[in-house]
Design a protein around this nucleic acid. Structure first.
Length: 432
RNA sequence: UCCCCGGUAGCUCAAUGGUAGAGCACCCGGCUGUUAACCGGGUUGUUGUAGGUUCGAGCCCUACCCGGGGAGCCA
């Protein structure tokens, strides 16, 4: 007897196979049970006729409520009317466990608070299933993309001695006799690695203790940060464009079922093709100045509503570059053509989702970087190792940070980032 | 930290200041083609907490707790 998974049923039409899973839903009609079986890879309807299976199994299934664990063996039949296109005509099987009464997540509607409180069970539902499988695919596509271009994955530490950028509020943790902080960015370490390996990326969790409470914020989220030696702002923008196009392409090619579960408008994804529009910060300011709903003041950073206005001008991500140096991080290199600007870029996702990537060319001159650190009143001692990178073989280098959850939410067309990470951590939620 | 909204059965919600309800879930019975099945029957409450106003509070007032949406900041 072949044990297989639901997503591979197409290879087994006409054969008898065994599926191992859980009862997603069951309806019975007299001497007939319809079991919607979930096995993690998909969902398929299994039909049990009373006369075709042993009485013990038929009786057990009649008592098997939602989420009971069952093992069913039967003939795989093509069934165009069934979701997924297949149906199992069950001949034998076993009920491993009758789920306890009171499985909280019913087929009816639930509020977000209730669902998050039961996230450990909610993961089994269709929507999280689709989203988290796409998240996985996006992570794989990203890794494959960088791997195929000769990037080395270099992990950055999660315990850090200080603020990487000196801005965000960090989580403080006891570290033996002193204090450590959870990383808010692996970038400074990625720079060190780029000067060692040429092209690198870090990919891991990052932490921000800011009391943000919006659909775009988590206190723990994943960030991918590529960094390239002998590269500038234009290289970074090209890399970001190629990367996003590749990710969307892979998801469109391999996750149609999941996108259908999410009722994603595929035309919005199919529009994600190169080239992405590019505009300077000043050009973006002009767009906002001409927009009646914008309260943006030229020179300031863009607020969330401003980003929405800008990104809604296009059907694909837009790259806004050369922001005022004053509102950006100390390590960003000044634009030689206009020293009030820096060589930075923000990529705003389409459909008004806001910033998904922030990147820049880094300041490679020791004296200029040191003056920026002093001007920002950052702890100079902590940055000595970072300054070493400018002392010994400094080169032009550049990179960016991609917010994984924001990217997944954008691709999935999901409103809130808390749905695109398995166990979201927000200001008021650390459970389960 | 600030602004707005909410908290009633396991869930989603209703209830003019006057006897706390419905649908679903769950349990029992029926049905060989269901798709959120259907039909019949049954179980379900410290109305977030503590005060106050009132003859009477789920409803009005005060404080607090919890959560949601947004701002700022950012990915």
């Amino acid at each position: 007897m072949t044990v297989t998974t639901i997503e591979k049923l197409a290879e087994h039409v006409g054969q008898t196979v065994t599926l191992q899973g859980w009862v997603h839903a069951r309806t019975s009609k007299g001497k007939l049970h319809f079991v919607q079986l979930r096995d993690g890879s998909g969902l398929v309807q299994c039909v049990l006729f009373k006369n075709n299976v042993e009485a013990e199994l038929f009786d057990a299934v009649s008592r098997a409520g939602q989420e009971s664990s069952v093992l069913l063996t039967g003939l795989v039949k093509a069934e165009p009317r069934a979701p997924g296109g297949f149906e199992i005509d069950v001949s034998s099987g076993a009920v491993f466990q009758i789920a306890a009464e009171g499985y909280p997540i019913t087929p009816k509607e639930h509020g977000i608070d209730f669902l998050l409180e039961h996230r450990h069970l909610w993961l089994r539902s269709r929507r999280p299933w689709a989203i988290l499988r796409i998240r996985h695919t996006i992570m794989m596509a990203l890794r494959n993309f960088f791997d195929s271009r000769g990037f080395i994955c270099v992990d950055s530490p999660i315990f850090t001695p200080n603020a990487c950028e000196g801005t965000s509020t960090l989580f403080e943790v006891p570290y033996f006799d002193s204090t450590a902080y959870l990383t808010q960015s692996g970038q400074l370490y990625a720079e060190a690695a780029a000067l060692a390996f040429g092209k690198v990326y870090t990919f891991g969790p990052t932490f921000r203790a800011e009391k943000s409470k919006t659909r775009r914020h988590l206190t723990e989220f994943w960030m991918l940060e590529p960094e390239m030696a002998y590269a500038g702002l234009d290289d970074v923008m090209q890399l970001a464009e190629d990367m996003l196009c590749h990710v969307v392409d892979v998801v469109l090619k391999t996750r149609r079922t999941e996108l259908a579960v999410l009722e994603r408008d595929l035309s919005k994804l199919e529009a994600i093709k190169p080239p992405f529009p590019r505009m300077t910060y000043d050009e973006a300011c002009a767009v906002l100045a001409a927009h009646p709903e914008s309260k943006h003041v030229a020179g300031d950073d863009f607020g969330a509503p401003d980003e929405t206005i800008i990104s809604n001008q296009f059907d694909r991500p837009v790259m806004v570059h050369r922001y005022p140096a004053a509102i950006k991080a100390f390590y960003m290199k000044r634009d030689p053509a206009d020293p009030t600007k820096c060589l930075s870029v923000d990529v705003l996702g389409s459909e008004g989702v806001g910033e998904i990537i922030g990147g820049s060319q880094r300041e490679d001159d020791l004296e200029l970087l040191l003056s920026r650190i002093r001007h920002e009143k950052l702890p100079e001692d902590f940055f000595q190792w970072y300054l070493d990178l400018r002392r010994y073989g400094s080169v032009p280098h550049a990179g960016f940070g991609l917010g994984l959850e924001r990217t997944v939410a954008w691709v999935c067309g999901v409103e809130h980032v808390r749905e695109v990470i398995p166990f979201p951590r927000t200001i008021y939620r650390i459970h389960p």
